[in-house]
Nucleic acid binder design. Structure first.
Lengths: 127, 127
DNA sequence: ATAAGTGCAAATCGTTTGCGTAGGC
DNA sequence: GCCTACGCAAACGATTTGCACTTAT
């Protein structure tokens, strides 16, 4: 049962795993698990509320156990991503709820922008 | 020159247009313009700073003339999107800059969450 | 025998790329 | 002749789906 192995991989993971990374980790223990099976299991786990996924950039979604929800920043230039405490969203979240009745999901999509390093490189051309 | 027609379509558009919608609108005036040409032109316009694109959900990106930058909300349930004034991001933007040196891009990706209507439907099941 | 779990290949969607060609200079 | 602007078809990456098979119960 691949389901159990997927659960173990997710439980042991420290950070965010793409479906592809999960497939790789599972295949180290069960070589013949196919990507479609992984996607099906992830979908089921998500419906059960065990895991969540987030979109950090243009690429593949990442998955991790539900629980401590945090925000994400993605640099549009270097594509690195950063985790931020979800408290940064407290005020915005309240404002959006008051103005639009919109309930913000703090972790599902990363905020886009330019990281400190890339901002420095932009202002100092040949560095 | 398809470039001129694309520019007209973008200038006349009120809201956000997907590449596919732009292709359709252009083809009403020049039937044989191919999608790849549209993408190439959009890429050039974006490099020139004439237009910007945003990701509003899981689907296709949307394009519009650069200028008044606003934020976007996308409902994860009904997939509708809403524009919000970029001032909503002022505080968060300042905080991220102070804490991480991260410069927020307010329009590039939509904030994800649940809209008022879908929240109401969730709490009132058979409505 | 029935339902659930799965592998594989093909399909999908948005977007990009390679290649060859037509026109402007 | 060379460069730009294309059209077309194929490639692409992430994900989904159809279908046949195997396994538990």
């Amino acid at each position: 049962m691949a389901k159990r192995t997927v659960a173990q991989v997710l439980a042991e993971a420290t950070g965010h795993l793409s479906a592809d990374a999960i497939t790789g980790a599972v295949q180290e223990r069960q070589p013949d698990v196919s990507p479609s099976t992984i996607y099906r299991i992830l979908e089921e786990f998500e419906e059960l509320g065990i895991i969540v996924h987030a979109h950090l950039g243009q690429g593949a979604a990442v998955f991790h156990l539900a629980g401590a929800v945090h925000g994400h920043l993605t640099c549009e230039i270097c594509k690195r991503t950063f985790e931020i405490p979800s408290t940064y969203f407290d005020d915005l979240s309240r404002d959006l709820l008051e103005s639009y009745g919109f309930e913000l999901d703090r972790h599902h999509v990363a905020l886009s922008g330019t990281c400190a390093r890339c901002r420095a490189l932009e202002s100092a051309p040949s560095g």
